[in-house]
């Protein structure tokens, strides 16, 4: 449970950091190129999850150039004799989950950035704020609903992920998703399987209620201003 939580949180965070600039570039590209760029981002995800994960596995496997490069760097930096590898451990699970869930973050962010009123950004920059400050104090607050939506649809599937941890994880990579599956399929234990599912459900109710409350508050504020 705690393990799933950490892995999913980290995955969501990394997805957010990678997806934001991607969504930003797509949203600020000339309008005619936007659908094409968006499609390019999502196209890799039309291959089957298993096929995709196997491909990622061969890219990161211990005999791959990438892994050997990482091994060289790791050994020279830490002075350690053994390299834990890029996959079959928690790192593998996180890389895999980020890979699998990235479009879930890019798409909602794009829809928000695309409508962003640029005059706010210009005003902020004109008033002497730095790009970073503009980013954190103008852009992020304005796209907050999309950030929350993106985090929800990234975090929840990552939390319950099954295939990726099974293929890329080590011995400790027991995610709640495979726990539920084991209970239901192998032990035929529907009550415990359902109870575990309910944990997920409660967590979502909480997050969604929070989101709903935030957007209500925002709407009320806009009305007050108007």
């Amino acid at each position: 449970m705690g393990y799933s939580l950490w892995i999913a949180l980290l995955t969501t965070l990394i997805c957010l950091v990678i997806a934001y600039p991607v969504a930003l570039v797509v949203a600020f590209a000339a309008p005619k190129w936007r659908p094409l760029l968006l499609l390019l981002v999502i196209l890799p995800f039309w291959t089957n999850l298993l096929v995709r994960t196997y491909a990622l596995k061969s890219v990161l496997g211990s005999s791959s150039p990438l892994s050997q490069l990482a091994e060289g760097i790791y050994k020279s930096v830490t002075g350690s004799e053994t390299f834990p590898g890029l996959i079959l451990n928690d790192l593998g699970v996180i890389i895999g989950l980020v890979y699998v869930h990235l479009p879930f973050m890019v798409l909602p962010l794009y829809t928000a950035l695309e409508k962003l009123d640029r005059s706010y950004l210009e005003a902020s920059l004109d008033l002497g704020a730095s790009q970073w400050r503009t980013f954190f104090q103008v852009m992020v607050p304005l796209t907050l609903p999309a950030i929350i939506a993106g985090c929800i649809i990234t975090f929840i599937p990552a939390f319950g992920a099954l295939v990726t941890p099974a293929l890329l994880g080590g011995t400790d990579s027991l995610m709640i998703g495979s726990l539920i599956e084991d209970q239901i399929k192998r032990a035929n234990n529907w009550p415990l399987g359902s109870a575990l599912s309910m944990l997920l459900v409660y967590a979502t109710f909480l997050i969604l209620a929070l989101q709903s409350w935030l957007s209500e508050r925002r709407a009320r504020r806009t009305e007050l201003r108007a």
């Binding site: 929840i156 399929k185 599912s197 997920l200 459900v201 967590a203 979502t204 997050i207 969604l208 709903s212």
Partner: peptide, 15 residues
């Protein structure tokens, strides 16, 4: 309603 809308996202696929 909004929370119920989120249910299919959370409930494990097998359930």
């Amino acid at each position: 309603v909004e929370a119920v809308n989120g249910l299919p996202i959370v409930i494990p696929e097998i359930s």
